[in-house]
């Protein structure tokens, strides 16, 4: 999965157009980034990238760029 595909999937889970998900976009500014929204994103990451995040890792992500950086090792260039 490429970064572009990840952003598309993230937009799908949160109901947000991918063009609004720039690296600097603050996750907490999206209404859908609530408890269930974050669970949906974790499920997407598990399904698409087959990886489980370390405890607390998602909570530390403040921006879309933080999330992409967290998953960088699993993304195709």
């Amino acid at each position: 999965m490429t970064k572009t595909q990840l952003i598309e999937k993230l937009g799908g889970e949160l109901g947000i157009p991918p063009n609004k998900l720039s690296d600097s976009a603050t996750l907490a500014s999206f209404t859908a980034w609530d408890s269930m929204g974050r669970i949906a994103v974790l499920a997407m990451i598990d399904t698409e990238l087959g990886c489980e995040l370390p405890s607390g890792a998602l909570q530390k992500c403040k921006t879309v760029g933080d999330l992409v950086f967290l998953l960088a090792g699993k993304l195709e260039s």
Binding site: S35, R38, I39, L42, E52, S55, L58, Q59
Partner: peptide, 13 residues
Amino acid sequence: YMNGPEIFNFTLK
């Protein structure tokens, strides 16, 4: 208090 995403993360493991 429930941290839903962390609980989900736990269940995945």
